[in-house]
Simulated scan of single mutants.
Amino acid sequence: MSVDVADMFAGLGGFSEGARLAGCRVVWAANHWRAAVDMHALNHPETEHACQDLEQADWRTVPSHDVLLASPACQGHSPARGAEKPHHDAQRSTAWAVVSAVEYHQPVAFVAENVRQFATKWVLYRAWCEAMHALGYALAPMVLNAADSGVPQERKRLFVVGTRTKHPITLRLPQRDHVAASSFIDFDAGQWAPIKTRRRKPATLARVAAGRARFGERFVMPYYGSGSGLTGRCLSRPLGTVTTVDRWAVVNGDRMRMLSAAENRAAMGFSDSYRLPTTHKQAVHMLGNAVCPPQARDVINALLEAM
């Protein structure tokens, strides 16, 4: 059975790539950021693309589809944004564009992805769900860890699966073996620097020392931001969550470096051939915003099997 998929807030294309891996045809993908649309088009040239504010979209121009995929902006919900930045802003309203698209096209099913706080902190989440119920959809929200889909990263995200059924469906998701961070880190590549330099902050040196005491000479640690305590993570575990800015450093003896764009790509579960922006900063930004393709594949396959 041929399944046509549309991808809202498509970004770099993780959801679309997961749909492709699940055997679906991605007929349309859209994002408001031209750079992201261009990268998506490079990797999915067979897909029709639109660069537009999806809150202003004319859904009559969008091809019909069986399943709608959507990753509305998470910045207004994510605690990674920081307490000093406002959370009640226009970015939260992008989720209502999903309701608008579903109302017009009435796909057989939709899958919306976001951070967990979308359901637990957004005061309008219940209203958003009620809007979907009014359109005839039963909702099955679930928090899933990308590591359980074989992605070498601990990344917990909310997936809301909506179906035109009387009751919410149950997805039978595979429980895949966790993949270690060591699977993608290349110790013979990258721009290494000595750990002990005059510019290195005491807090960084303290994390390195604690990590070395616990894990030995090689491990990963959060260089910017927090997470994984004060000691980092051993290489036999999946990496911690990849974010939109450089976060993870690799320690190798008396030297260290940040993860490369290619290593971040592998940590997100994209193939080595998936094309990225040429600038490191933009590549990391798009990767940190993406859906992990293997996780998307597992969710979509389970959805299709349950329908």
Score class of each variant (00 low, 15 high):
R212I: 03
Y125W: 08
A283W: 00
E46L: 06
Q91H: 05
M142W: 01
V98W: 04
R199H: 09
T94V: 01
P107G: 10
A6F: 02
R297N: 11
P294I: 00
N289T: 06
H49W: 11
P168K: 01
H178A: 03
D254T: 02
V102Y: 05
V242R: 08
L12N: 15
T243V: 14
G136C: 14
A10Q: 11
Y274V: 08
F15P: 07
L68S: 12
A283D: 06
V220I: 15
W122P: 15
A209H: 04
T120F: 07
T120M: 04
P294Q: 08
R25E: 13
E103D: 11
F118R: 04
Q106A: 09
K201W: 01
S236R: 11
D89I: 01
V284Y: 12
M1Q: 02
H105Y: 01
V98D: 15
R218Y: 04
P194H: 02
L171V: 08
A296M: 07
R297C: 14
N31D: 15
A95G: 02
V108F: 04
L135M: 15
P63I: 06
V220F: 07
L124K: 05
A109L: 06
D246E: 13
T278G: 12
N145R: 00
C234E: 13
R297M: 01
A134M: 07
A80I: 05
D272A: 14
F9Y: 03
